[in-house]
């Protein structure tokens, strides 16, 4: 049983950090603010969720797993709401979304 637990933990941790890497690269490469907020809100949340599930597998059924479950639910709810608030404020502030035909790369 111990090996299965370790294999699951390693698998989830690797997947989680892979998605966080993709999120970071997305923040750099994408041309516009609104496209970048895709990267942080979505792939970051998925990365965190996978890593927290990996830790839950590593901890087994304990009080820590319950606390990790609370963190999992909170991040799943809070991260998208925060990114949405930021994007809404940016749109009200007057930032125009990027369109292909403009060819002006807002790097």
């Amino acid at each position: 049983m111990n090996e299965v637990k370790d294999i699951l933990t390693i698998l989830f941790l690797l997947l989680g950090s892979f998605f966080m890497l993709i999120g970071s690269i997305g923040v750099i490469r994408l041309p516009d603010f609104f496209t970048r907020s895709h990267a942080t809100s979505k792939s970051d949340t998925l990365g965190i969720m996978l890593i927290v599930v990996g830790l839950i597998c590593y901890e087994g059924l304990e009080l820590n797993s319950l606390k990790l479950m609370i963190i999992f639910v909170f991040i799943a709810l809070a991260n998208p709401v925060g990114s949405h608030a930021l994007a809404r404020a940016a749109f009200k502030f007057g930032i125009k979304p990027w369109f292909k035909k403009e060819e002006k790369d807002q790097d």
């Binding site: 970071s24 923040v27 942080t40 963190i71």
Partner: peptide, 17 residues
């Protein structure tokens, strides 16, 4: 300024992990 906020937010959520 929102790009900076986005970067800071991304760093914040990664620090939790």
């Amino acid at each position: 300024v929102f790009d900076r906020l986005l970067g800071a937010g991304a760093i914040g959520t990664k620090t939790v992990v």
